[in-house]
Design a protein around this nucleic acid. Sequence first.
RNA 1: GCUGAGGUAGCCAAGUCCGGACUACGGCGCCAGCCUUGAGAGCUGGUGGUGCUCGUCACCACGGGAGUUCGAAUCUCCCCCUCAGCGCCA
Length: 420
Amino acid sequence: MLDPKIIREDPELVRQSLVNRGFDLTYFERFLEIDNRWRALIDEGNRLKAQRNKCAQEIPKLGEEEKRKLIGEMRTLSERVQQIESEEVSIEKERDEILQNIPNIPHVSVPVGSSDADDVIVRYSSEVRKFDFKPLSHWELGERLDIIDFERGTKIAMSGFYVLKGLGARLERALINFMLDLHLKQGYKEIFPTVLINEKSCFGTGQLPKMKEDMYHIEADNLFLNPTAEVPVTNLHSDEILSIDQLPILYDAYLPSFRREAGKHIETKGIGRVHQFNKVELVKFVVPETSMDHLESLLKNAEEVVQLLGLPYRIKLLCTGDLGFHSAKTYDIEAHAPGMDQWLEVSSCSNFLDFQARRAMIKFRRAPHLKSEFVHTLNGSGIALPRTMISVMENYQTRDGLIEIPAILRNYMGGIERIE
RNA sequence: GCUGAGGUAGCCAAGUCCGGACUACGGCGCCAGCCUUGAGAGCUGGUGGUGCUCGUCACCACGGGAGUUCGAAUCUCCCCCUCAGCGCCA
């Protein structure tokens, strides 16, 4: 959520940011209109309430006659207060809705563009791997080696789910442990949050109300299956005022994530887009003026994962038209999948500035006597498992259809060197 | 799941039966000032949010919501959470 003061005080900045993102201006113009009315109403309401409060204190001190008269007057006044309040409530509801539909302002360093075609490739790691045979896709490899079972995933759950078996399951576990150990060395504190999260947390990070259709919902208890550890981990500090010496806070978390992908046809074969996947997530809470530097180090921390795995990758700086709603600046890390001949997004590292913190009410104080301010939050995948698995399987395949285990993972797999 | 006790400011906690000087008692912590060579003690003030006319301003905030009332921390209804005991259970 944007600071309403920014929209009020510098509407031109917000207007330009919406144009750059390719958003239409309806909500924005409506905000300006409604915000004025909202403030006028608050003002009038407060005036009347002040009078009511004052008279309510006078009444017990008065004689019978005067008392009866004043109570009569107050009854009328109270009715007006109620009218104003109910109008306030409805305007406030609309105002909040509008605010929730205005995206974050892209940082000045974000390139202006209309779609992912305008994203800027910041760097390539190396050449993609060249094969002297036709590389197989991970689903072909997975089925041949009996380490990915799509049919049985569908049987026990539904289509879009899969089961890892044998060394496939073990490779997944090795990847998770490797990532967690790496992030520990990078200075992150490991968190293992809840898989089920409540409605309030989903609002806090902005999954609700916009992405409701994309989440699995447990009706009996009104809980949601975690769509990304960003939600529970960021909300660890919701409604808190942190002290400055706690910052920066760096968390990493391994957690299964669930997405209904409603409305999206899961056409891609394989495990590139599935309903349940593992992910290691990095989350930071930082002092505002340091957040852009923290974005760079966050990216480096995630990048190190693909580097150490020896995967060909590239870094993209998303343009205004491709930037996520809540983000002010985002880098994507894409690993190459030679079997599919595609670049796969394995990580998305974003700086949200105070956009999330304002919603989740995460504040800090520079000194005990100073006013609290919103922290800046950042997060990035460190990294998403299925697509990493794809890139590992397809890059490390051999001519005879086996998969070499990347050197860095062998210790995590009891010294096993290949899947055969 | 059942029964009971609770939820008041950063923390502890009075007030709730019986609505009105609650401007939410008191304490702890923290901040500022005074005092002091310094520290401590002591004293004074401050210690959540929003709005604007930026003030010794106004409004809001006693788990959340709705209601009754001129007036609600206090009364009524609904919901949430915590703790204890019992039950069930990996």
